[in-house]
Design a protein around this nucleic acid. Structure first.
Lengths: 363, 363
DNA sequence: TTGAAAGCGCTAACAT
DNA sequence: ATGTTAGCGCTTTCAA
């Protein structure tokens, strides 16, 4: 104790109580204190009470850092997320944080530098000993997979998928969504369609486009014009500008996400004076916050955020409690939120709880 | 070693290399490994190289949990933030995360339950041994202050202030901003003003209102009508509805933040068919993302996000490196971003870099 | 049920 | 410059 009290005396402020201090005050062993704070440990009610009382007096709080060193569980989940301008992601983040904290986990946020590789981020995550990784809006390098497997930490992708068999992914039904939008626009009598892609290497954008284009072909409408918005507001605005400046203007544009669709509406209305929903139809994907705002009234494929987050948390916890369990590939169904930004088809609309949706009459 | 290898053998997968393993492979002591990974430690280049080589072979990564246990520095900053629907906050979060990671800190996010007290959140933060706390968009209980002081961890408020002398705060000039908006609206010839408050116990809303009302009085315009939007989109919409349904409709509304101002524009335009900027003026505060979108063109007091975040990080790091240093109370100046949602005054407008601002001709 | 003892992976004196 | 040693605050055998 001597060297300890000396070094302490040199420090400023009162010491933070440790289990040892509590043990001394309660007249029990330090392991008794540990047991008192461990659910399901074998300890008598009397001892537990004595410890609780002493802990209260000293303002004792178990040190989770020390605990994780020995249990090898930090109870911290690394969440990689950037691109928070897109309202979908902050909402997802908030929901993730809440859902995880309900299960006793905290979220450590990794945003990464804008253009940088994800490798330095991975390094930090691993050094901090996160128990698992949730990746949303971040592309992962090939090293990611193998490094995480070596480290034995589960990886769950949200809103994107991967080829790897060891990584779980939760998405909505991107292909089906794209196809539904194609059917919706075809039923609305549109003839000159366009698609605005996100980024080329995004599985999400690819799936939505694939569903869209295939369904379009099935409806006898040719390949849509194609522009790239890179999931960015300004890039999407520029892409929309080029679309509307072309000699043959499309009568409907499907944007790979709402964030770009909102940019498209802005350009169509403010720069080209078009009445969106009458002179041109614009459809998005996500149903992120502003989509439902009256001034936009964006028709969009709604991704069920809460359900997706629940699946992410479930998938993460499943692999945490049984590391040998298989990675899952969950597809959560969404629905078409019909509003005013696209011309309505004559049939197939239904209203429930004030929400309008559309289903193809056939099939 | 015996019990160790036995317990290990029972586990699945390859072990994660420790400094001990690296030391053995490199033929040096374990402390040499530690030094090799500590900047500025006295170690010969040869030893460093040997260690680096062995570490590379084993895929060794220093365990930050173990390190923080002994250094008493987790290099984790707790950030309390909710209300991520308001675009200002996700942007702030992203900027905070990036700025902190530049200085070697990671952000642990605490969102708290929607309506709950902040006390359970505080408990978690303290147990996780965060080095400091940044509080944005969360109200703190009275316990907060004293508990954090006991624990010796600095608290920095962003976008709100407090009476406590031990807590730092970074805000923009809320009073001055409110006053500037009052002058701007007065100069624009408005006569029937209204103010939409955030929540009553928010220092930010109070300061903006105070600056606004006082300046209004100075311009010979009486006390503005007052509604409360609680910083919530739907509540703000309802408040706007009541404002516009009243017999004497205001000709200008100043909303305590952009999020509510956007709701107000939605209601004015979609429900009352008003041309915003001509038939009614709406002004916000923040200059969060969508404010600049053409369909809104929101005139607003711009809070300099990057500068505020830099100040938050600087204040945090300052107290971290010198715990005896005083808490700061920093007010970062902003500027009036003039767009189309409010009628323009005849004089005082200036344009620079494509951005329009306004300064009162007098003073 | 309880306490003693070992040790999680690392840093930091201290001695050499 | 390097190795030895003593912990950081906790959980977890192991005996009693």
């Amino acid at each position: 104790m001597a060297p300890r009290s000396i070094s302490r005396a040199a420090e400023a402020g009162p010491r933070i109580a440790t289990a040892h201090d509590v043990a001394r005050l309660a007249g029990v062993s330090q392991s008794a204190v540990s047991r008192a704070f461990t659910a399901g440990a074998s300890i008598s009610p009397e001892t537990r009470d004595k410890v609780a009382e002493a802990a209260r007096k000293l303002g004792y709080r178990p040190n989770l850092v020390a605990r994780s060193l020995i249990t090898r569980r930090s109870h911290v989940i690394g969440v990689a997320m950037a691109y928070l301008e897109n309202q979908f992601y902050p909402r997802a983040l908030e929901a993730l944080s809440q859902a995880f904290s309900t299960r006793g986990y905290q979220v450590m946020l990794f945003t990464g530098k804008p253009g940088a590789s994800s490798d330095p981020m991975l390094e930090e995550m691993l050094r901090h000993k996160v128990d698992a990784l949730v990746m949303a809006s971040a592309s992962l390098s090939s090293r990611f997979d193998v490094e995480c497997q070596n480290a034995g930490i589960p990886v769950v992708l949200m809103n994107r998928r991967t080829e790897s068999r060891s990584i779980s992914s939760i998405t909505s039904d991107n292909r089906q969504g794209g196809a539904l939008i194609a059917a919706f626009l075809a039923a609305g009598g549109h003839r000159h369609l366009a698609f605005m892609a996100g980024s080329e290497n995004s599985s999400t954008s690819q799936d939505r486009e694939e569903g869209f284009t295939h369904a379009l072909a099935a409806h006898g409408l040719g390949t849509p014009r194609r522009v790239v918005g890179l999931y960015d507001f300004d890039q999407a605005a520029a892409a929309m500008r080029s679309l509307l400046s072309a000699p043959e203007r499309p009568d409907a544009v499907f944007c790979a996400n709402d964030h770009m669709a909102l940019a498209a509406i802005n350009v169509a209305r403010a720069e080209f004076g078009l009445e969106v929903g009458r002179e041109i139809s614009i459809v998005g994907f996500d149903d992120a916050g502003p989509a439902a705002w009256p001034v936009f009234g964006l028709t969009t494929y709604a991704q069920p955020l809460r359900a997706m987050v629940e699946e992410v948390v479930a998938a993460t916890c499943a692999r945490l409690s049984d590391p040998t369990s298989q990675a899952v590939r969950t597809i959560v169904p969404g629905w078409l939120a019909v509003r005013s930004s696209a011309r309505l088809p004559p049939v197939g609309l239904t209203v429930r709880d004030g929400l309008t949706t559309w289903m193809p009459p056939e099939v």
